[in-house]
Nucleic acid binder design. Structure first.
Length: 491
RNA sequence: CGGGGUGUAGCGUAGCCCGGUUAUCGCGCCUCGUUUGGGACGAGGAGGUCGCAAGUUCGAAUCUUGCCACCCCGACCA
């Protein structure tokens, strides 16, 4: 059970985030370093995210499959950039058996059970999947392969934060194989679009679609597309990536196909993923000092009904009205909880459901039964109104849509207000130190320039926005005809 | 990996500097009663390898040494 009160965002954003995750009952630290326990309420939100994305993947022609957790060590090193990128954060399985210690102190690793070849706990599945695709692909008729898997992966991060960066996390990874470069690029861009649509329409999080620079690119990719979001503290968060992998993995795993003319070609690849990190984005975009704020489309409970009564007769009356309302709401696809727990007072429940971000709260008391009204409270703006019971379920349905829109409008306004142009690196640094957020600036496309800016400002290029066409003078080199890109300090 | 911190009941903590009855307090939990429109109240009750190991001592939550774990800040990070 959560206890009272959160620290204010303005006082300590990081502590606010940690407290919120815990008090809203989303997740907790496990006894294993860097690994979290996702609690039922948090997992219910993840399931909403997952179900919607899964639907969208299937609508775009993808199928789910499942590949092993373990990857033979040798596979990982077949693609040079890939192993370089992941080697430093891999968990490795070296043995397959334990035995009782001779001194009776417990179990120890049995040295006789050493594996011939160590197994890597997947940090991502490109290698094992492309090793498999080699067996699946012979002809252009076998293409495209459009597969997604929902899985857990492990990346042994130096420092972890609940949902944002954990040693083990849940995600989906799409892995597709195509006959042509054009088709693979089209797929990469299509899935970026799916992510952006999902973020904006379901999570109510505005995102900027763009390309990563070479420095920030996925290990083994030709091009990494991303969606970038802005959190309330002005730091950017990479919310999803879609990679055009070229023929790198096909070459590393020798995956070729015969085209219509019988000529052998290497297959073109993409991969794309979003993770439980989206939970972090969701929390840090909408929530306030009272707790979690959830967009209705992702709220496990969209409406909570709290009865207020002084005797069993009143409770009976309220319950009988509530049951009727619930059946109407459920009938139009709205999830409702009727909280008639007698051990908690209404005030306690109000605070609790605010902490948990339930979009709408209905309180029904003797007064309401008499007047045929209910008290309706919105979580997003904390407003309360008294409404007539007439057509209530329709009103609620409309209001939920309204809240979804309002949240998106509010976060979109925030994003717009926090993109600032800088014409010099000093100006950029000033902006980052005061209001923070995204900073637009011209960059000559050079990795060294990018590094210099990072050294001065601690900001990285979050992306080269897809829709940005303007050019100008680079803030470091002075090169004219430089691209306008987005910088930010990031999670 | 560098810096800082913490480890005492389910959770949060006091006690530790300066060793000494039965280890403090709050929340939560159980029982009974009264309550219920913004985190109720009373009475009674249960719950402890004081992170682990060794040492010093008549005596260790407290001192010493070693170890372990986690958190926070930074560096790193698809």
């Amino acid at each position: 059970m959560s206890s009272k009160g959160l620290i204010k965002r303005s006082e300590d954003f990081s502590k606010w985030y940690n407290d919120l995750v815990s008090k809203a009952d989303l997740a907790e630290h496990s006894d294993v370093r860097g690994c979290m326990i996702i609690k039922p309420y948090g997992y219910a939100i993840w399931e909403k995210i997952k179900d919607q994305l899964d639907l969208m993947f299937k609508e775009t022609g993808h199928q789910n499959a499942y590949f092993p957790l373990f990857i033979p060590k040798s596979y990982l090193s077949k693609e040079a950039d890939h192993v370089e990128g992941f080697a430093k954060e891999c968990a490795v399985v070296t043995h397959y058996r334990l035995k009782n210690a001779e001194d009776g102190s417990g179990v120890v690793v049995d040295p006789d059970a050493k594996l011939e070849e160590e197994l890597i706990v997947r940090p991502t599945s490109e290698t094992i999947i492309w090793n498999t695709y080699k067996k699946w692909i012979q002809s252009y008729r076998d293409l495209p392969i459009l597969v997604n898997q929902w899985a857990n992966v492990v990346r042994w991060e130096m420092r972890t934060r609940l949902f944002l960066r954990t040693s083990e996390f849940l995600w989906q990874e799409g892995h597709t194989a195509h006959a042509t470069k054009e088709e693979a690029i089209e797929e990469t861009e299509k899935m970026l679009g799916v992510y952006a649509d999902f973020a904006q329409q379901h999570m109510a999080i505005p995102v900027i679609k763009g390309l990563k620079t070479e420095n920030e690119r996925f290990a083994g990719a030709e091009e990494t597309y991303c969606i970038e979001a802005l959190m309330q503290d002005g730091k950017a968060l990479q919310a999803g990536t879609s990679h055009f992998l070229g023929q790198n993995f096909a070459k590393a795993f020798d995956v070729t196909f015969a085209d219509k003319n019988g000529k052998q070609n290497h297959v073109w690849a993409t991969s794309w993923g979003v993770s439980t990190r989206l939970m972090g984005a969701l929390i840090m975009t909408h929530s306030d000092d009272q707790g979690l704020v959830l967009p209705p489309k992702l709220a496990p409970i969209q409406v909570v009904i709290v009865p207020i009564y002084k005797n069993p007769e009143q409770l009976d009356q309220i319950t009988s009205y509530a049951k009727q309302l619930i059946s109407e709401l459920v009938g139009i696809g709205i999830s409702v909880k009727f909280d008639d727990d007698d051990n908690k007072k209404p005030g306690w429940k109000f605070a609790e459901y605010e902490m948990k971000g339930v979009p709408l709260r209905i309180a029904i008391g003797p007064r309401d039964i008499e007047n045929k009204t209910v008290e309706l409270a919105r979580r997003d703006d904390l407003s309360k109104t008294t409404l007539s019971q007439k057509d209530l379920s329709q009103k609620i349905s409309k209001l939920l849509e309204q809240i979804q829109e309002d949240l998106f409008r509010k976060s979109s306004d925030f994003l717009k207000d926090n993109i600032t142009f800088a014409s010099t690196v000093e100006e950029m640094n000033d902006i980052l130190n005061s209001k923070s957020g995204f900073v637009e600036a011209f960059w000559n496309g050079d990795s060294e320039t990018e590094q210099k800016i990072k050294d001065i400002t601690k900001a990285t290029i979050r992306c080269i926005p897809l829709e940005e066409k303007s050019t100008g003078k680079c803030i470091i080199s002075g090169d004219l005809n430089s691209k306008k890109v987005l910088f930010a300090r990031a999670y």
